[in-house]
């Protein structure tokens, strides 16, 4: 009898101890997944923050597109070094440019601009379709790959920045783009080593109507 009492007391003490210091916790699976997701890189949030807090605030830094195109026509190597940037080991050059041009053609996925007031030559193409690649992420030099331990996050950021342009800038551009209209733009371009300088494809980060026809 005494022994049974002793066992009951010992079990009660053990139960009390494990209540205070449990061996394991029961956690709902959904809660675990949410916690894991919170610790993960949120590319959509990072892209929006970068867009609002850095990219749009840096538009004034963009080089003049007309001046850069003229310099590229005169001495391409010098112009690339002066106005562009090269990422790591690469033969292409990235540019951050702004300018004003008259719409000379509107096609399925592009708006063609002439930068000279009376010119008909297409100097710049502003895309209006799907965007791919890292031009928007890399052209300004505001982001550094070394700050991202996992390059997948850095690349996800690129995809989200492209979506931001597609969803916020391109609808505006499509609405503005009519032959004869003058558009001001700021955007990013990548020029491959042996590519023709004109027309230069510039992904717009901002567009506005400068003058109606």
């Amino acid at each position: 009898m005494k022994r049974a009492l002793l066992v009951i007391v010992a079990l009660a003490l053990l139960a009390g101890f494990f209540r205070l210091v449990p061996l394991f916790h029961m956690v709902p699976l959904r809660q675990t997944r949410q916690a894991a997701a919170a610790g993960e890189f949120n590319a959509t949030h990072a892209a929006q923050t970068f867009w609002d807090e850095q990219l749009l605030k840096s538009l004034a830094r963009a080089a003049d597109a007309h001046q850069v195109l003229s310099a590229l026509a005169t001495d391409a190597a010098k112009a690339r070094a002066q106005y562009g940037r090269t990422l790591g080991i690469s033969t292409s050059t990235l540019f951050f440019l702004s300018g004003t041009g008259r719409v000379v053609a509107v096609k399925k996925n592009t708006v063609a601009l002439a930068l000279s007031p009376e010119g008909e030559t297409v100097d710049v193409l502003l895309p209006t379709g799907r965007l791919f690649g890292n031009t928007v992420r890399d052209a300004t030099g505001l982001l550094d790959a070394s700050a991202f331990p996992n390059s997948q996050n850095f690349n996800d950021l690129s995809t989200e920045l492209n979506h931001l342009v597609e969803n916020t800038v391109l609808p505006q551009l499509r609405e503005l783009a009519k032959p004869g209209v003058v558009i001001s733009f700021t955007g990013c371009a990548e020029l491959e080593e042996d590519a023709d300088v004109k027309p230069l494809k510039i992904i717009p980060l901002a567009v506005r109507l400068a003058a109606a026809p």
């Binding site: 990422l87 790591g88 690469s90 033969t91 292409s92 790959a145 070394s146 991202f148 390059s151």
Partner: peptide, 8 residues
């Protein structure tokens, strides 16, 4: 040295 150097 830069930490990450992308190669095109």
């Amino acid at each position: 040295f830069p930490q990450k150097i992308p190669v095109a």
